[in-house]
Nucleic acid binder design. Structure first.
Lengths: 150, 150
DNA sequence: CGTGAAACGCGCTTCGC
DNA sequence: GCGAAGCGCGTTTCACG
Protein backbone atom coordinates (compact mmCIF):
# COMPACT_ATOMS: atom_id res chain seq x y z
CA UNK A 1 0.00 0.00 0.00
CA UNK A 2 2.24 2.76 -1.18
CA UNK A 3 1.51 6.01 -2.93
CA UNK A 4 1.14 4.28 -6.30
CA UNK A 5 -1.44 1.82 -5.00
CA UNK A 6 -3.48 4.70 -3.62
CA UNK A 7 -3.31 6.51 -6.93
CA UNK A 8 -4.44 3.40 -8.78
CA UNK A 9 -7.38 3.03 -6.41
CA UNK A 10 -8.33 6.66 -6.93
CA UNK A 11 -8.20 6.34 -10.69
CA UNK A 12 -10.25 3.16 -10.71
CA UNK A 13 -12.84 4.74 -8.44
CA UNK A 14 -13.30 7.43 -11.06
CA UNK A 15 -13.44 5.01 -13.97
CA UNK A 16 -12.98 1.28 -13.61
CA UNK A 17 -13.16 0.74 -17.38
CA UNK A 18 -9.73 2.23 -18.02
CA UNK A 19 -7.11 -0.01 -19.59
CA UNK A 20 -4.14 -1.09 -17.52
CA UNK A 21 -1.94 0.52 -20.13
CA UNK A 22 -3.36 4.02 -19.56
CA UNK A 23 -3.48 3.36 -15.83
CA UNK A 24 0.20 2.52 -15.88
CA UNK A 25 1.04 5.61 -17.87
CA UNK A 26 -0.73 7.83 -15.34
CA UNK A 27 1.17 6.45 -12.35
CA UNK A 28 4.48 6.05 -14.14
CA UNK A 29 4.44 2.29 -14.58
CA UNK A 30 4.18 -0.11 -17.47
CA UNK A 31 0.83 -1.69 -18.28
CA UNK A 32 1.96 -5.06 -17.02
CA UNK A 33 3.17 -3.69 -13.68
CA UNK A 34 -0.05 -1.72 -13.17
CA UNK A 35 -2.02 -4.87 -13.92
CA UNK A 36 -0.04 -6.82 -11.34
CA UNK A 37 -0.57 -4.11 -8.71
CA UNK A 38 -4.30 -4.07 -9.25
CA UNK A 39 -4.47 -7.87 -9.28
CA UNK A 40 -2.82 -7.97 -5.86
CA UNK A 41 -5.10 -5.25 -4.52
CA UNK A 42 -8.07 -7.38 -5.53
CA UNK A 43 -6.49 -10.52 -4.11
CA UNK A 44 -5.84 -8.81 -0.77
CA UNK A 45 -9.44 -7.62 -0.66
CA UNK A 46 -8.50 -3.96 -0.78
CA UNK A 47 -10.55 -3.76 -3.95
CA UNK A 48 -13.71 -5.69 -3.14
CA UNK A 49 -15.39 -5.63 -6.52
CA UNK A 50 -16.03 -3.74 -9.71
CA UNK A 51 -19.50 -2.26 -9.77
CA UNK A 52 -21.65 0.45 -11.30
CA UNK A 53 -22.93 3.64 -9.76
CA UNK A 54 -26.64 4.10 -10.38
CA UNK A 55 -28.77 7.23 -10.32
CA UNK A 56 -31.14 6.53 -7.42
CA UNK A 57 -33.95 8.63 -8.86
CA UNK A 58 -33.90 6.59 -12.07
CA UNK A 59 -34.70 3.41 -10.19
CA UNK A 60 -37.42 4.86 -8.01
CA UNK A 61 -35.42 5.98 -4.99
CA UNK A 62 -36.25 9.66 -4.69
CA UNK A 63 -36.16 10.31 -0.98
CA UNK A 64 -33.50 9.58 1.59
CA UNK A 65 -34.22 9.31 5.29
CA UNK A 66 -32.19 8.38 8.33
CA UNK A 67 -33.97 6.42 11.02
CA UNK A 68 -32.77 6.33 14.62
CA UNK A 69 -33.96 3.09 16.16
CA UNK A 70 -34.25 2.45 19.85
CA UNK A 71 -34.79 -0.87 21.50
CA UNK A 72 -33.41 -3.37 23.94
CA UNK A 73 -32.34 -6.97 23.93
CA UNK A 74 -31.81 -7.31 20.21
CA UNK A 75 -32.53 -10.72 18.86
CA UNK A 76 -29.35 -12.04 17.28
CA UNK A 77 -30.80 -11.82 13.81
CA UNK A 78 -31.74 -8.15 13.92
CA UNK A 79 -29.15 -7.42 11.24
CA UNK A 80 -30.66 -10.04 8.94
CA UNK A 81 -34.18 -8.83 9.58
CA UNK A 82 -33.17 -5.30 8.64
CA UNK A 83 -31.23 -6.50 5.61
CA UNK A 84 -34.44 -8.14 4.43
CA UNK A 85 -35.96 -4.68 3.94
CA UNK A 86 -34.70 -3.57 0.51
CA UNK A 87 -35.10 0.14 1.21
CA UNK A 88 -32.65 -0.06 4.11
CA UNK A 89 -29.24 0.60 2.59
CA UNK A 90 -27.18 0.95 5.75
CA UNK A 91 -27.56 -0.23 9.32
CA UNK A 92 -25.13 0.79 12.05
CA UNK A 93 -24.91 0.25 15.79
CA UNK A 94 -24.18 3.64 17.28
CA UNK A 95 -23.01 5.21 20.50
CA UNK A 96 -25.32 8.01 21.43
CA UNK A 97 -28.95 9.01 21.34
CA UNK A 98 -30.21 5.68 20.01
CA UNK A 99 -29.13 2.10 19.44
CA UNK A 100 -29.23 1.84 15.67
CA UNK A 101 -28.98 4.22 12.73
CA UNK A 102 -30.51 3.22 9.41
CA UNK A 103 -30.17 4.86 6.03
CA UNK A 104 -33.33 4.40 4.02
CA UNK A 105 -34.08 5.22 0.40
CA UNK A 106 -37.60 5.06 -1.00
CA UNK A 107 -39.72 6.27 -3.88
CA UNK A 108 -41.49 8.87 -1.76
CA UNK A 109 -42.33 10.00 1.74
CA UNK A 110 -45.36 7.75 1.67
CA UNK A 111 -43.15 4.68 1.35
CA UNK A 112 -41.09 5.73 4.33
CA UNK A 113 -44.06 4.88 6.51
CA UNK A 114 -44.15 1.37 5.09
CA UNK A 115 -40.48 0.93 5.92
CA UNK A 116 -41.03 2.13 9.47
CA UNK A 117 -43.81 -0.41 9.83
CA UNK A 118 -41.41 -3.13 8.74
CA UNK A 119 -38.72 -1.88 11.11
CA UNK A 120 -41.16 -2.11 14.01
CA UNK A 121 -41.73 -5.74 13.12
CA UNK A 122 -38.12 -6.47 13.99
CA UNK A 123 -37.90 -8.07 17.44
CA UNK A 124 -36.75 -5.66 20.14
CA UNK A 125 -37.55 -2.35 18.45
CA UNK A 126 -39.34 -0.02 20.80
CA UNK A 127 -39.24 3.33 19.01
CA UNK A 128 -37.96 5.15 15.97
CA UNK A 129 -37.14 8.71 15.06
CA UNK A 130 -36.94 9.68 11.41
CA UNK A 131 -34.83 12.40 9.84
CA UNK A 132 -35.81 13.24 6.27
CA UNK A 133 -33.20 14.53 3.85
CA UNK A 134 -34.29 17.67 2.03
CA UNK A 135 -31.28 18.04 -0.25
CA UNK A 136 -28.10 16.09 -0.72
CA UNK A 137 -24.99 18.19 -1.28
CA UNK A 138 -22.87 15.19 -2.20
CA UNK A 139 -22.31 11.49 -1.68
CA UNK A 140 -18.92 10.16 -2.68
CA UNK A 141 -16.60 7.21 -2.14
CA UNK A 142 -13.78 7.19 0.38
CA UNK A 143 -10.74 9.19 -0.62
CA UNK A 144 -7.82 6.75 -0.79
CA UNK A 145 -5.25 9.51 -0.24
CA UNK A 146 -3.98 9.61 3.32
CA UNK A 147 -4.48 12.67 5.43
CA UNK A 148 -1.19 13.49 7.01
CA UNK A 149 -0.98 15.39 10.31
CA UNK A 150 -2.68 15.18 13.70
CA UNK B 1 -36.86 0.96 -17.71
CA UNK B 2 -38.54 -2.42 -17.73
CA UNK B 3 -37.89 -5.54 -15.73
CA UNK B 4 -34.93 -6.51 -17.90
CA UNK B 5 -33.20 -3.17 -17.41
CA UNK B 6 -33.54 -3.53 -13.67
CA UNK B 7 -32.10 -7.03 -13.81
CA UNK B 8 -29.16 -5.79 -15.85
CA UNK B 9 -28.51 -3.06 -13.32
CA UNK B 10 -28.66 -5.55 -10.47
CA UNK B 11 -26.21 -7.89 -12.19
CA UNK B 12 -23.78 -5.10 -13.01
CA UNK B 13 -23.92 -3.84 -9.43
CA UNK B 14 -22.75 -7.27 -8.31
CA UNK B 15 -20.04 -7.55 -10.93
CA UNK B 16 -19.42 -4.93 -13.59
CA UNK B 17 -16.70 -7.02 -15.25
CA UNK B 18 -19.15 -9.55 -16.68
CA UNK B 19 -19.25 -9.92 -20.45
CA UNK B 20 -22.32 -8.73 -22.32
CA UNK B 21 -22.72 -12.27 -23.60
CA UNK B 22 -23.17 -13.78 -20.13
CA UNK B 23 -25.27 -10.79 -19.13
CA UNK B 24 -27.56 -11.44 -22.04
CA UNK B 25 -27.83 -15.12 -21.25
CA UNK B 26 -28.90 -14.35 -17.69
CA UNK B 27 -31.73 -12.03 -18.73
CA UNK B 28 -32.76 -13.99 -21.80
CA UNK B 29 -31.26 -11.73 -24.47
CA UNK B 30 -28.44 -11.94 -26.96
CA UNK B 31 -25.11 -10.37 -26.16
CA UNK B 32 -25.66 -7.61 -28.68
CA UNK B 33 -29.07 -6.71 -27.32
CA UNK B 34 -27.78 -6.66 -23.73
CA UNK B 35 -24.96 -4.41 -24.87
CA UNK B 36 -27.41 -2.01 -26.48
CA UNK B 37 -29.57 -1.93 -23.33
CA UNK B 38 -26.61 -1.12 -21.12
CA UNK B 39 -25.32 1.47 -23.56
CA UNK B 40 -28.64 3.29 -23.42
CA UNK B 41 -28.75 3.07 -19.62
CA UNK B 42 -25.37 4.78 -19.53
CA UNK B 43 -26.41 7.34 -22.10
CA UNK B 44 -29.53 8.22 -20.14
CA UNK B 45 -27.46 8.61 -16.98
CA UNK B 46 -29.18 5.77 -15.17
CA UNK B 47 -25.76 4.17 -14.92
CA UNK B 48 -23.46 7.00 -13.88
CA UNK B 49 -20.14 5.24 -14.04
CA UNK B 50 -18.23 2.02 -13.54
CA UNK B 51 -16.23 2.07 -10.35
CA UNK B 52 -14.59 -0.11 -7.73
CA UNK B 53 -15.68 -0.82 -4.19
CA UNK B 54 -12.84 -0.41 -1.73
CA UNK B 55 -12.36 -1.81 1.76
CA UNK B 56 -12.35 1.35 3.89
CA UNK B 57 -10.11 -0.17 6.57
CA UNK B 58 -7.47 -0.97 3.97
CA UNK B 59 -7.09 2.69 3.06
CA UNK B 60 -7.06 4.00 6.61
CA UNK B 61 -10.72 4.68 7.19
CA UNK B 62 -11.49 2.65 10.27
CA UNK B 63 -14.12 4.67 12.04
CA UNK B 64 -17.40 6.06 10.82
CA UNK B 65 -19.20 8.93 12.49
CA UNK B 66 -22.27 10.98 11.71
CA UNK B 67 -22.14 14.65 12.54
CA UNK B 68 -25.25 16.74 13.06
CA UNK B 69 -24.39 20.33 12.23
CA UNK B 70 -26.36 23.33 13.36
CA UNK B 71 -26.00 26.82 12.11
CA UNK B 72 -27.72 29.68 10.44
CA UNK B 73 -27.36 31.79 7.35
CA UNK B 74 -25.22 29.39 5.37
CA UNK B 75 -22.77 30.99 3.06
CA UNK B 76 -23.57 29.84 -0.44
CA UNK B 77 -20.42 27.80 -0.67
CA UNK B 78 -20.99 25.71 2.44
CA UNK B 79 -21.32 22.62 0.28
CA UNK B 80 -17.97 23.30 -1.38
CA UNK B 81 -16.28 24.00 1.92
CA UNK B 82 -17.51 20.69 3.29
CA UNK B 83 -16.54 18.87 0.12
CA UNK B 84 -13.01 20.17 0.62
CA UNK B 85 -12.73 18.00 3.74
CA UNK B 86 -11.75 14.57 2.39
CA UNK B 87 -13.08 12.66 5.38
CA UNK B 88 -16.61 13.97 4.76
CA UNK B 89 -18.24 11.44 2.45
CA UNK B 90 -21.80 12.69 2.55
CA UNK B 91 -23.47 15.99 3.33
CA UNK B 92 -27.23 16.38 3.48
CA UNK B 93 -29.61 19.16 4.38
CA UNK B 94 -32.14 17.65 6.75
CA UNK B 95 -35.51 18.36 8.27
CA UNK B 96 -35.36 17.82 11.97
CA UNK B 97 -33.07 18.23 14.93
CA UNK B 98 -30.31 19.98 12.99
CA UNK B 99 -29.57 21.67 9.69
CA UNK B 100 -26.99 19.34 8.16
CA UNK B 101 -26.05 15.71 8.50
CA UNK B 102 -22.52 14.63 7.58
CA UNK B 103 -21.12 11.17 7.19
CA UNK B 104 -17.48 11.11 8.16
CA UNK B 105 -14.88 8.37 7.83
CA UNK B 106 -11.46 8.64 9.46
CA UNK B 107 -8.51 6.54 10.56
CA UNK B 108 -9.43 6.77 14.22
CA UNK B 109 -11.45 8.61 16.83
CA UNK B 110 -8.56 11.00 17.24
CA UNK B 111 -8.93 12.18 13.65
CA UNK B 112 -12.64 12.84 14.15
CA UNK B 113 -11.68 15.80 16.29
CA UNK B 114 -9.62 17.23 13.47
CA UNK B 115 -12.59 16.94 11.13
CA UNK B 116 -14.86 18.69 13.62
CA UNK B 117 -12.35 21.51 13.84
CA UNK B 118 -12.47 21.87 10.07
CA UNK B 119 -16.27 21.78 10.07
CA UNK B 120 -16.35 24.63 12.56
CA UNK B 121 -14.24 26.66 10.17
CA UNK B 122 -17.10 26.60 7.68
CA UNK B 123 -18.94 29.91 7.74
CA UNK B 124 -22.24 29.73 9.63
CA UNK B 125 -21.64 26.63 11.74
CA UNK B 126 -22.61 27.20 15.35
CA UNK B 127 -22.60 23.71 16.85
CA UNK B 128 -22.12 20.04 16.09
CA UNK B 129 -23.21 16.77 17.61
CA UNK B 130 -21.32 13.62 16.77
CA UNK B 131 -22.64 10.08 16.65
CA UNK B 132 -19.94 7.42 16.51
CA UNK B 133 -20.62 4.11 14.78
CA UNK B 134 -19.66 1.12 16.91
CA UNK B 135 -20.43 -1.59 14.37
CA UNK B 136 -21.74 -1.56 10.84
CA UNK B 137 -24.22 -4.33 10.05
CA UNK B 138 -24.19 -3.59 6.34
CA UNK B 139 -23.75 -0.92 3.69
CA UNK B 140 -25.05 -1.76 0.24
CA UNK B 141 -26.12 -0.13 -3.02
CA UNK B 142 -29.71 0.69 -3.89
CA UNK B 143 -31.80 -2.29 -4.87
CA UNK B 144 -32.97 -1.66 -8.44
CA UNK B 145 -35.96 -3.95 -8.04
CA UNK B 146 -39.21 -2.06 -7.45
CA UNK B 147 -41.13 -2.59 -4.30
CA UNK B 148 -44.71 -3.22 -5.21
CA UNK B 149 -47.55 -2.42 -2.78
CA UNK B 150 -48.48 0.52 -0.58
C1' DC C 1 10.19 -5.47 -8.93
C1' DG C 2 9.71 -3.12 -13.15
C1' DT C 3 10.28 -2.94 -18.44
C1' DG C 4 8.95 -3.34 -23.30
C1' DA C 5 7.57 -5.87 -27.16
C1' DA C 6 5.22 -9.62 -29.27
C1' DA C 7 1.55 -12.96 -29.55
C1' DC C 8 -2.40 -14.59 -27.99
C1' DG C 9 -7.24 -14.71 -26.83
C1' DC C 10 -11.52 -12.70 -25.87
C1' DG C 11 -15.28 -9.81 -26.19
C1' DC C 12 -17.20 -6.23 -28.81
C1' DT C 13 -19.38 -4.90 -32.94
C1' DT C 14 -21.57 -5.21 -37.07
C1' DC C 15 -24.27 -7.40 -40.37
C1' DG C 16 -28.28 -9.62 -42.78
C1' DC C 17 -32.37 -11.63 -41.21
C1' DG D 1 -33.94 -8.60 -30.99
C1' DC D 2 -31.09 -12.54 -33.05
C1' DG D 3 -26.82 -15.12 -34.22
C1' DA D 4 -22.53 -15.58 -36.59
C1' DA D 5 -18.35 -13.81 -38.35
C1' DG D 6 -14.53 -10.61 -38.24
C1' DC D 7 -11.79 -7.60 -36.15
C1' DG D 8 -9.82 -4.61 -32.76
C1' DC D 9 -7.68 -4.13 -28.45
C1' DG D 10 -6.10 -5.07 -24.15
C1' DT D 11 -4.07 -8.66 -21.61
C1' DT D 12 -0.50 -11.69 -20.77
C1' DT D 13 3.82 -13.56 -21.18
C1' DC D 14 8.66 -13.54 -21.81
C1' DA D 15 13.68 -12.39 -21.59
C1' DC D 16 16.09 -8.80 -19.70
C1' DG D 17 17.73 -5.04 -16.39
Amino acid sequence: MDEIDRKLIGLLQEDATRSYASLGKEVGLSGGAAHERVRKLRERGVIRRTTIEVDPAAIGRDVVAYVLVDGSTWMGDAADRLAAIPAVEEAHVIAGPASLLLKVRTAGTRQVQEVLRQVFEVEGVTSTQTVVVLETFFERPSDPQVESRS
